[in-house]
Amino acid sequence: MKSWLSVLVFSASAALASPERGLEIAVEADARDQGFGDSTSTMSMVLRDSAGNTNERAIRNRTLEGADEGDKSLVIFDSPGDVRGTAFLSHTKKAGSDDQWLYLPALKRVKRIASSNKAGPFMGSEFAYEDIASQEVEKYSYNYLRDETLNGMDSFVVERFPVDKKSGYSKQIVWMDKAEYRAHQVEYYDRKGSLLKTLVASGWEQFEGQYWRPSLMDMTNHQTGKGTQLLYSDWVFNNGMDEKDFTKTALKRLR
């Protein structure tokens, strides 16, 4: 009887290990986060080197939810002093490269920047541009792997493969809890297929009775021993921002 049961369980999970199931989970996670309109938050970025020395940056984030296209986001730097006032505007695309501009306050200049640098480090951190960009469903293909218990939570384990060839990853493995579809852990594999980084998201808070956001995202680079923590605070949803707050003009006038 026991052997029959294990055969049954084995074949059931084998049947579930599928691209279709993986996409379903990604679509459901995306659907649960829809309708947030816009959000603002402040972020402290703490870089640490392999010797444990740390280096901190203060950043403000603004995000506008996209309807047909991807989300739009603004990142404003408050410290360190030499980059204060520098701002980064991104119009995420569901397919193809995102549109990105950088505002340089000393020159009062808005510069369009190439977005093929998605695998490059964001502000010297262990987060690549593609890690902090809006995670649109269309940016990956998926494969559901298995169920697993992570930190006591019943979770899906899904692998996803970047569609864009300029991604720095061959694949990512995501642990998402079944109750709320929050990504608690992501493993990033480099182009050679080796484990490169692990992201752990914690301190989840729910806003507006629907939207979950982590207060800490901790990225560890296994190949260099370096890491970066993003500590989020002051989340505010539905600030009444619109498209005009995410234009090149708005970028020049940020405070």
Binding site: S97, D99, R112, I113, A114, S115, S116, N117, K166
Partner: peptide
């Protein structure tokens, strides 16, 4: 005019 290509501006 600026054209933004993959790695070239």
């Amino acid at each position: 005019a600026q054209y933004t290509g993959d790695a070239s501006l």
